[in-house]
Write a protein that binds this DNA or RNA. Structure first.
Length: 280
DNA sequence: CCAAGGCCTGAATG
DNA sequence: ACATTCAGGCCTT
């Protein structure tokens, strides 16, 4: 009998979902939008804002979900090995900017860029006698100069960050509305933002907008599918076009079901650990 | 519809 | 010591 209740915080933080987290002895501290979270080993959250949030998606029925994605030996092993891994419900604006910044980059670099964005544009607060910089609001990033953004290390993505922020500030992108939409509608809308392609859109939808059928296909996931599922998903080419991405996503949700996003997270975690890739 | 090349940065390799 | 290659996703041609 598997223990579906206990959260493994270490594995959850170190799974490519979040970047602005650091460990301090037995606690993890992280920025989540305008909030700072402190989480202890047993998963108990203390927040700067004192607002209640369901960061760990506690209402998800893990037993049902994990059983439903365990379609084969590969997923069964990944689920068993990383059982306490959770999908997080992140602050949407921070998640959106984070994954726009993430494109063509890696975890260490993304973390540095986002820290710079917070330091340069975010509000400084004190929590537990430590100094933190909150994630800046859309209006601030929208009015930042391109040079100021570039100074954060975001390179050619700087203009994407600026325009994406403007689109949120002007309410052309409304996260509360996107949460209510179905997966395909939300994806279509968010894909109009420059710098948001298939993969980035799926990350935003999965990690902050409650779309559990999103299955971000980055280079790692493509490799994983080629390696473990060569016959099921029949990957034809190396680089994947927009159209092929959509066809593949259809096959994936057909196979793993409505909670495919969870399958993605377990497979990604497993393979990155197999290759001893560094996390935060 | 697809293929190819450019964008930016830092780490790894020659 | 320096130059080249590579990893990473999106957009334009």
């Amino acid at each position: 009998m598997l223990d579906y209740c206990t959260i493994n915080l270490e594995n959850t933080i170190n799974s490519g979902q979040v970047f602005l987290w650091k460990r301090n002895q037995n606690n993890w501290y992280g920025i989540n939008g305008r909030d700072v979270l402190k989480i202890n080993e047993s998963g108990k959250i203390k927040s700067f804002s004192k607002q209640k949030i369901d960061f760990f998606r506690e209402k998800d029925n893990l037993e049902e979900i994990l059983k439903s994605i365990s379609k084969d030996q590969i997923t069964k092993e990944a689920v068993k090995k990383y059982l306490g891994l959770r999908l997080l419900r992140q602050d949407p604006f921070q998640c959106y900017i984070s994954f726009i910044v993430s494109s063509n980059s890696n975890i260490q670099k993304i973390k540095i860029c986002l820290e710079n964005i917070c330091k340069n544009f975010g509000k400084k607060v004190f929590f537990d006698n430590n100094e933190f910089f909150l994630f800046p609001e859309p209006k601030i990033l929208a009015s930042a100069s391109l040079q100021e953004l570039k100074n954060c290390g975001t390179g050619y993505r700087s203009n994407f960050v600026k325009i994406a922020s403007e689109m949120v500030y002007s309410k052309e992108i409304n996260f509360d509305y996107l949460k209510k939409c179905d997966y395909f509608t939300a994806k279509e809308i968010i894909s109009k933002v420059p710098g948001v392609g298939n993969k980035v859109a799926d990350c935003i939808l999965l990690f902050s907008l409650d779309k559990l059928e999103a299955f971000p296909l980055d280079r790692w996931m493509i490799r994983i599918l080629e390696k473990y599922y060569p016959n099921i998903f029949e990957l034809s080419t190396k680089s994947i076009t927009k159209n092929q991405y959509e066809i593949l996503h259809g096959k994936i949700t057909n196979y793993f079901g409505l909670f495919s996003g969870y399958a993605q997270q377990f497979l990604f975690k497993m393979e990155r650990e197999n290759y001893k890739k560094k996390w935060l």
